[in-house]
Design a protein around this nucleic acid. Structure first.
Length: 687
DNA sequence: TTTCGGCGACTTTTT
DNA sequence: GTCGCCGAAA
């Protein structure tokens, strides 16, 4: 098989680059994944590189799986020696192999964000601090943020009593993690980084081994991830980084596009290859996306083009209300569908999850099947978390988080008081160690866990899981609970997953890590033909025949919270860019003049992003007519209706919020904010 | 100890 | 509008 067949000249250049570090700026739909996988195949097949020398890192498990699958399809060889995975997955692998050098117990476990939050809460309480003043969420953010900067508690700069306390919480949190033998997500990275940094022998081992480091979605790396990569790269290693600064939409969680410039400098990069030919969308869609993104000042600069036809114009619909917007979308979906477009090739995108409700409702009324992405994932469900907690206890009874989760679930009459006294006596040790002889109920619990340990000793993984679900009483609890059937099914599914799970070491340890690192599918029903509903964030990397971008209103998209953040609007614009470039053939943009949000009606003006798309690319559809009733409170009709878009010579654009007879209107201006205007003097023009 | 009701929050998300 | 958490009552 010819790896280079069907690639364009720039792609070929990237795939066949000589052995030195390079940065590939790959625009939306430019064949990024293909270049990455072809590069690996090329290295192995044409350059005689051993899979052993290759490390490829991605952000999501899905991307890692896809990469593995594509490479296996291209090459007839065993690629097991290759390290392909997420940053966290690879760090986990490294720490398991060198747990002693990293100062971790052999069977350390991984906490997900929810476990971490619970632990932070516990620590704050154990320090007798007020969690009103020190909100656990905020502390969690502080801890993760610090770790992502590579900082341990003693590295954190303290300039007042508040940060001093934060530091103390951080410190106590670390001590607690060490006591229990658990690590959080950021810890995986930081530990692995510190291990490489301190241990010269290991560092040199990996630096000599991995001569080829390939990174997907490089624009999404944070400081620590980049530092980790830098440590891993030896004198003889080449970094092949693929990314798109225009699609960087995760700055809010620490992603730093500055890493692209640093990479250029640190690795003396001569080759920056731009992949600008787009194989996805029609011309008008790309022109719109290009025009939009040009409004961003901080860019490396790229312009997508296509040899495809211009295609249709973008369709824009402004609805009077969010309900009517949803109805319009449903009608269009129906006509697309009857025209032969499969439902699952139609996506409905929105900025925030709260917006999906109206859309779901309209789809439901029209009996169109749909699938909403987002929400609880398999390993995050409470029944699964409970079962996993029992498994964790069987494996390591000192895991306080797991113990607290299930010591009274199903209910055993061990309440807050009992647990409090237990925590008081535990001191520096684990709750488990302090539990013996603390009353009959607790002794029963201890005996239960010990019985499980005996029962599971030497058993196969699936058997262990089944035993634990049975003996813990979870099964009978959900059996007796109304609406417990789904939960029972999920528990069965967990046994299934355990039966299918393949491991190389201790199956239980690996299964528990797997559960934390890979939270599982968001929802079942993958194959069915259904309209796809999701946030723009989760649409990244996907493409559809037709895309609806809804709720294009100031305050929603761009979101009002982004206004005050540095670079906030630019990130929102990149998000919009991602939304536009998801469409292959047809793109709908829509907004509503009034919208129910958080239980009250809001009036917004259309998003600024709509203005940033050249008018000639947009075909307006049935510009909304306003409601029938004049917006008047005093009986005298106002010439303006609530929700009308107006222009004022001094204040600019705005939207009418309220009217006072024929004399006064209240307008929310895009720039000037809220104003009451006397119509006699204010020169309002309809727009 | 459990259960129920009220009150507040509420952008985006992967590991 | 709805979820989740916390505090008060059964």
């Amino acid at each position: 098989m010819d790896i280079l067949a069907g690639l364009n000249p720039e792609q070929i250049e990237a795939v066949t680059l000589p052995h030195r570090s390079a940065l590939i700026l790959a625009g939306a739909g430019s064949g990024k994944t293909r270049v990455l996988t072809s590069r690996i195949a090329h290295l192995i097949q044409k350059q005689g590189v051993s899979p052993h020398e290759i490390l490829a890192v991605t952000f999501t498990n899905k991307a890692a799986r896809e990469m593995t699958a594509r490479i296996s399809a291209m090459l007839p060889i065993n690629i097991r020696g290759m390290w392909i995975g997420t940053f966290h997955g690879l760090c986990n692998r490294m720490l398991r192999a060198h747990h002693r050098e990293a100062g971790l117990p052999e069977t350390f476990q991984i906490m997900d964000s929810a476990d971490q939050l619970a632990m932070v809460k516990r620590v704050i309480r154990s320090l007798n601090l007020d969690d009103e003043k020190y909100p656990p969420k905020q502390l969690q953010h502080f801890i993760n943020g610090s770790k992502e900067e590579g900082l341990r508690p003693h590295d954190v700069s303290v300039y007042d009593t508040f940060t001093r306390t934060q530091q103390e919480i951080f410190s106590a949190y670390e001590a607690q993690c060490n006591r229990e033998g658990v690590v959080d997500f950021a810890e995986l990275l930081l530990r692995s980084f510190e291990l490489l940094k301190r241990n010269e022998i290991l560092r040199e081992h990996y630096q000599t081994r991995f001569r080829h480091l390939l990174i997907d979605e490089f624009q999404d790396t944070n400081r620590l991830q980049y530092q980790w990569l830098k440590l891993l790269a030896g004198k003889d290693s080449a970094i092949f980084a693929v990314g798109d600064d225009d699609q960087s939409i995760y700055a809010f969680r620490g992603a730093d596009t500055g890493n692209m410039r640093e990479l250029e400098r640190d690795f003396h990069i001569r080759d920056i290859i731009k992949l600008e030919q787009n194989y996805r969308s029609h011309g008008n869609i790309l022109d719109a996306a290009n025009a939009l993104i040009r409004h961003n000042a901080s860019r490396l600069g790229k312009n997508l083009w296509t040899s495809d036809a211009r295609g249709e114009k973008l369709r824009f619909y402004q609805a009077p209300t969010d309900l009517q917007e949803a109805e319009y979308i449903v009608e269009e979906i129906q006509s697309l569908h009857s025209g032969g477009v499969p439902l699952n090739d139609i996506a409905l995108l929105y900025r925030s999850n709260a917006q999906s409700r109206v859309l779901e409702h309209a789809l439901f009324n029209a009996s169109l099947s749909y699938r909403v992405y987002g929400g609880l994932r398999f390993f995050e469900r409470q029944e699964i978390k409970h079962a996993l907690a029992y498994l964790r206890l069987v494996h390591n009874p000192d895991d306080d988080g797991a113990l607290l989760r299930v010591i009274n679930f199903p209910a055993r009459g061990i309440g807050a008081k009992t647990i409090e006294s237990l925590q008081a006596t535990a001191g520096g040790g684990s709750l488990w160690a302090a539990a013996r002889g603390k009353g009959r109920k607790i002794d029963d619990f201890i005996r239960l866990i010990e019985a499980m340990q005996r029962e599971c000793h030497g058993a196969a993984l699936a058997e262990t899981v089944e035993t634990v679900i049975e003996m813990s009483g979870l099964k009978s609890h959900y059996l007796h609970e109304k609406d417990g059937e789904d939960r029972l099914e999920n528990l069965d599914e967990l046994v299934n997953a355990a039966a299918l799970f393949e491991s190389e070491g201790d199956p239980l340890v690996e299964f528990l890590s797997h559960a934390a690192l890979e939270a599982g599918e968001r929802q079942s029903g993958e194959g069915s033909d259904a309209v796809q509903l999701m946030t723009v964030h989760s649409a990244k990397g996907l493409e559809f025949h037709a895309v609806f971008v809804s709720g294009l209103e100031e305050g929603l998209f761009p979101h009002s919270n982004s206004r005050n953040e540095a670079g906030g609007i630019e990130e929102e614009r990149r998000l919009m860019y991602v939304a536009l470039t998801r469409a292959r053939r047809r793109l709908y943009l829509s907004c509503a003049q009034s919208r129910m949000l958080h239980g009250q009606t809001n009036y917004n003006i259309p998003s600024r992003f709509l203005k940033e798309i050249p008018e000639e690319l947009i075909q307006p559809i049935g510009i909304a007519e306003f409601g029938d009733a004049p917006a008047s409170f005093s009986g005298k009709a106002s010439p303006w209706r609530i929700g009308a878009n107006v222009f004022h010579p001094k204040f600019g654009e705005g939207v009418v919020l309220a009217c006072e007879g024929a004399e006064q209107v209240q307008v929310n201006f895009r720039r000037a904010g809220m104003k009451w205007l006397a119509l006699e003097y204010a020169n309002l023009i309809a727009i």
